[in-house]
C-alpha cells in the first residue's frame, strides 16, 4: 500500500527512446464463440470459408491473428461490423477469454510470457498497470454516478496509490489535458455530454501512464465537431506521452488521421496490413478496395 507521489506525477515525463523491440506481440490469436464441434476445432485461414461453422453454428470471431505493436506507434484496425475488430481488443484487454493464442508485453515482467495464460489476479494487475481502454460506450468505461475525479482515482487505487492529495492533483492534470474545466472535476460524468464523457474516459484510461492504450470506436456516435476534438486530443496524447495505441474503427477517415499502420480485418482474418497511406492509396485486397472506394 505504499506509494510515491513524486513517481505518480513524474512518470508522465519519462524519457521516451525509440525502441526496435515491439511493445506488444500477438501471435495466433483466435477466439471462438459457441461450443464448437469436430468440424470447427481449428480456425481455417481460408478467406472463402466463412467464420461460422455450418454444422454447429459456432463462430471464429478472430482467426489466427498475429501482429506487433511498437512503442509510441498507433495501429489502426478497420473492417466492417462483425469482422472481429472489437473482439480483438476485448481479448487484448481480457474482457473476453481468448480461445487460443499468445500475447506478450515487453514492459511487463519477463517480457516473453504468454499473458493469456496468467491468473485472473495477474490479468487484473496487467490491465491496471500497463493498459488503458476506451470503450465506444462511456457507460462501460465509467461509473456514471461517481465524480469524474473519482473515476480517475479508481484506476489509481487499482495501481496502489492511496494519497488523496496526489490523486486529486493527478486527476486535475489529466482532466485539464482533456479540456474538462477544473470546476467540474467532482461532477459525475452522467451530467456531461457524450463528447465530454468520452474525454473523461480517455483521461481515466491514461491515469496510470499505461504504455498501451486500446481505443474501440471512440468517436462513433459523436457529432463531427466533437469527433474532431477527440481525435485531436488522441493525437496530442500520442505525441506528448508516446503511448502506443490500437485504434479500432470502421471509419477510414479516423484511421487515416490517426494510424501509422493499419490492419484490415474481414471475417476474423487479417486480409491486408501495411502503412496506412499505402493501404488507402493503393489497396491490394479486393475487400480493402471496396472499403476505400465506398469512402465518401
Amino acid at each position: 500500500m505504499s506509494m510515491n507521489s513524486a513517481d505518480l506525477i513524474n512518470n508522465a515525463e519519462k524519457e521516451w527512446v525509440w525502441n526496435e523491440t515491439p511493445l506488444l506481440k500477438v501471435r495466433g490469436l483466435s477466439k471462438q464463440f459457441g461450443a464448437g464441434c469436430i468440424h470447427c476445432k481449428q480456425p481455417t485461414s481460408d478467406e472463402q470459408e466463412g467464420s461460422r461453422c455450418q454444422y454447429c453454428g459456432s463462430i471464429w470471431a478472430c482467426r489466427n491473428l498475429s501482429f506487433d505493436l511498437y512503442p509510441g506507434e498507433i495501429l489502426g484496425v478497420v473492417g466492417e461490423s462483425g469482422s472481429g475488430k472489437s473482439t480483438l481488443v476485448k481479448c487484448l484487454y481480457f474482457d473476453e477469454e481468448t480461445t487460443v493464442g499468445e500475447m506478450s508485453i515487453s514492459s511487463y515482467e519477463d517480457k516473453t510470457s504468454n499473458l493469456f495464460e496468467k491468473s485472473a489476479q495477474q490479468k487484473r494487475y496487467i490491465r491496471n498497470h500497463v493498459m488503458g481502454m476506451v470503450y465506444q460506450n462511456p457507460l462501460l468505461g465509467l461509473r456514471m454516478p461517481i465524480s469524474s475525479s473519482g473515476n480517475i482515482a479508481e484506476k489509481l487505487f487499482a495501481a496502489d496509490h492511496y494519497h488523496v492529495g496526489s490523486i486529486r492533483q493527478r486527476a486535475a492534470d489529466l482532466l485539464q489535458k482533456v479540456e474538462i474545466p477544473l470546476a467540474r472535476m467532482d461532477e459525475p460524468p452522467k451530467n456531461f455530454s457524450g463528447g465530454m464523457q468520452q474525454r473523461v474516459q480517455i483521461s481515466k484510461a491514461l491515469a496510470n501512464n499505461p504504455p498501451l492504450l486500446l481505443l474501440d470506436e471512440v468517436t462513433t456516435g459523436l457529432d463531427l465537431s466533437v469527433q474532431a476534438k477527440v481525435l485531436d486530443l488522441i493525437r496530442n496524447i500520442q505525441r506528448e506521452l508516446r503511448v502506443a495505441m490500437i485504434v479500432v474503427s470502421h471509419d477510414l477517415g479516423v484511421i487515416r488521421m490517426l494510424a501509422d499502420r493499419t490492419m484490415v480485418l474481414r471475417q476474423g482474418l487479417i486480409v491486408e496490413q501495411g502503412l496506412t497511406d499505402q493501404i488507402l492509396e493503393d489497396p491490394r485486397h479486393p475487400y480493402t478496395q471496396l472499403l476505400v472506394h465506398s469512402l465518401l
Partner: peptide, 21 residues
C-alpha cells in the same frame, strides 16, 4: 466473491474517496 479472490478493492476505496470529496 470474485473481487475478494482477486483483491479487487478499488470500488471500496472509491466510496471512501467520494466521502472525502
Amino acid at each position: 466473491r470474485i473481487q475478494h479472490a482477486e483483491m479487487d478493492y478499488s470500488a471500496m476505496w472509491l466510496t471512501l474517496y467520494e466521502s472525502i470529496v
